[in-house]
Every structure is written in C-alpha cells, then in structure tokens.
Design a protein around this nucleic acid. Structure first.
Lengths: 218, 218
DNA sequence: CCAAAAGTGTTAACGCTACACCCATGT
DNA sequence: ACATGGGTGTAGCGTTAACACTTTTGG
C-alpha cells in the first residue's frame, strides 16, 4: 500500500427524522448536479480539515436545511467503493431528531429543494441512501424502547396521547393505552407539569415533560 | 469549503478480543515509529483505494497479527483532528473476536512485537486507543447479553462451565451456575452434542455447540 | 344525551433470582 | 470416604400483556 497516494474523500450524511401527526418523516433534499438531477437524497457533505465528524454533521444540518437537532448521533460508516458516482467517498451516517413544531426549512442554491417525506413513502434515493435510511430506522426503534430519546421529537410539554402517537409512528403499530401509560410512567423519565390543556372538544389532558433532555439508559 | 483540497486519510483500527482462562485479553502491537517507539496500540492501517472498510479491517488483521476472526463488526468512527500526531487521520474502529485455541501470533517488521494483554491491565495506549478500547468493551458486553456472539470466543465444542467462564470474564463478575445454565439453554442457541469429556479428576461434562455461528438477535 | 378522548385497576403468564441438594469421577 | 466440579428443581418477586369501564368536556 502507498499511504501517501491514498485519495479518499470523507463525508457525512444526515438522516433527519421527525414525527408529524401519527407518521414518521425524513428530511430529504433534491439534487441538482448531474447525473443525479432531481433525485432525492439525505443532506450530506465533505468534512472540513479541522472538523470532527460530529461538527461536520451539525454544520451540514444547519447549512443545508436550517434545522437544529435536539439529538444527533453517529450511526455507521459506509464505504462501498462505488457508492458515489463522483469518486471515492467514505461517508459516516448520522441520525438527527427534531420536533416538527415551528421548524422553517431552507436550503442552499446547491439543491433544487428540501422537504419532509413520509418514511413509508421514501422511494429510490441517491447513492446508498436507502440502505442508510433503513439502518437509521432500526437504530431509532432501538432508542425508543431503551432510552428517553422521544424527548427530541416532541415539544417541551406534551400529553400522554401525543407521546403515544410518536411511539406508534415509529413502531408502526398501535399501542394499548393503559399499558403504554404504565410503561412510560414506570420508566421514571417523564413528570407531570400539573397543567392541562384542551386538545379538542373533550376532556382536557394533563401536560407532561421529560425529566431530562439527555439520553438515559433506561 | 474547498472539497478538492480535502486531505484526510482514512484508516481502520481493530480491537481484537479473546478469552483465555477466565480473563479477557486484547491483542496489542508495539510500535517502532517515533515518537511512539515502544508504545502499545491496537493494530490498524490505511484503507486501500478499492477496499471497503470491512475488507481493510480483515486484511490488516491478517497482515499485522496472523489472526483470523470468527466475528468482525464495525463499531464507530473516531475523528478528533489531533488524534494522530502524524497527520489528519479519521479511523473506523472494528471489533474482532477470536477463539484463543491454536492461534499463532505473528507481525510484520513494522512493529516491535505483538501480544495478548489482559484487558484489565491495559495501560496508556497510543492515539485515542484507550477510548476505542472502552467503546469496544461496552459493545462486547451488549452482544454477550443479546446475541449468540460467544460462539466466536470458543472452540466449536465446549462445556457449559467453559461457556460460563467466557461470560464471567467479560462481565467481570461470577455467575450463578443454575441460573446461567437455564438462561443459556432457554435462549435456544446451543445444543448438546451427546458427547462428554473429562476436564479433570471428576465427573465428565457434556459437550455443547452453538446451533448457528451467525449472529442471532435473541 | 351523545360523541370523543382522558383516565384508571386487576388478573394471568412469564422470566429472573435466590437458594440446597445429589451425581460421577479419581485419588 | 472425600474432594471437586457436573448437574437439577422450586418458590417468590417483579414486569408485561390482556382486558372494560368511568370521567370530562363541547356540541
């Protein structure tokens, strides 16, 4: 091997999830550059000379989408030699979670557009991004069951039903109300605020908040 | 950013574990190159132009240690700008597991030596390798409880007591014999071979094997 | 009084933990 | 007979899954 001749680019790609209504969405950008014109992809880019991968993921998130993540975590590094038609690029995938409330999307002139797409409806994406997306979904499901990660998908205060919708959107199946509540309260990661709100023409619901916005092992 | 000027090297580092007796060991190489002369590190190297990271990890394992892994998995990519004193190198860590039986270690002239070191006794390693090692240990513990990964740390046939030693070495605490056996048999990942062996001057023990040498979720 | 979501309690099955005793072997 | 690890059964406890009814509100 000739180390000095190694010529591999280092990039990051962000899988950005949110829950809207009772569906899981991914943030995608639409490419301009040929031969991928019009194709959708997850926002990514090259890593700067003095940046860590975490820094690069955060910067790219901001530059290409205007989103600020409540949660950002490295997933896996993808390295198939032909994964990028423009040359050899090794890319580290990150997962970002955001609360959809009050997010204003924007993008740079590098892309044709940016938008939330239903996870279930994501078609053929650029590069190996379908594979990356599937990987991220699996990790997200794991976090949901084992950590308090849901805090990053909700506003600071929320009702138990809203929380349940997040779980249902990610798991892809309905939960049993009583058991869901017992499970959440039993985990000791949320607390009642004492307040309540009307979400419609019926009995008001109590507002809860997560005790901590950091990840918790159980 | 000026993509064409990006000059970051891409490497892999292998964390290689085995269990000998009732202790967990890591395979380390001793460096020759200044300023890290005599310092111990985990075997690593640059990725080839047409190699995936998995391929590079496998190759480096073979070239630098003579070991062939029963299990190899990507862990995490480390990217602190000053992690390598020789220049900007982003490194993807891999975890390899081997059965210590009949392994012959060798290394290249690039290094002063190669040897198994007790995990508990690993001192200050080169680069950020202490951090990588800690990360790998956590992942190993997770696999032990949730997959059949132990198969890659044992010969094809083994007694339940030998299996228990592997669990104890990694968990760092003794297990309760009856519960350990019930747990292992209950997971449905091992099967009796019908054979038995004498491991000393006492009642012979039954030999078991893993039903599958692949990873199993539960 | 009706519709719609909010909210609560009990039971049964399962898995995990803790614990005590007999078995097969070589010396 | 004794020392050593090999091997088994049971009872209690906590967690989870399944299930039905009452409450509060607006219309």
């Amino acid at each position: 091997m000739h180390p000095s001749t190694q010529n591999i680019k280092v990039a990051v790609d962000n899988v950005i999830f949110t829950v809207i209504g009772n569906k899981l969405f991914v943030l995608l950008i639409q490419m301009k550059k040929k031969p991928l014109e019009g194709v959708w992809a997850m926002p990514g880019g090259l890593v700067g000379e003095k940046e860590t991968l975490d820094d690069a993921a955060t910067r790219i998130l901001r530059e290409e989408t205007g989103v600020k993540a409540g949660f950002l975590e490295q997933l896996h590094t993808f390295s198939a030699p032909k994964r990028d038609p423009f040359g050899r690029v090794v890319s580290t995938a990150y997962m970002a979670l955001v609360s959809a409330e009050g997010i204003k999307l924007r993008t740079t002139s590098k892309y044709m557009g940016v938008d939330w797409m239903p996870y279930a409806g994501a078609k053929k994406l650029a590069y190996d991004h379908n594979q990356i997306l599937a990987y991220a979904k699996t990790r997200l499901e794991w976090h949901l069951e084992h950590t308090n990660i849901a805090w990053s998908l909700l506003p600071r205060e929320f009702t138990l039903t809203e929380l349940q919708r997040v779980y249902e959107a990610i798991r892809g199946r309905k939960a049993e109300k009583r058991n869901f509540r017992k499970m959440m309260l039993g985990r000791d990661i949320i607390a009642s605020t004492g307040k309540s709100v009307m979400r419609g023409a019926w009995r008001p619901a109590q507002l809860y908040r997560f005790k901590s916005g950091d990840r918790v092992a159980k």
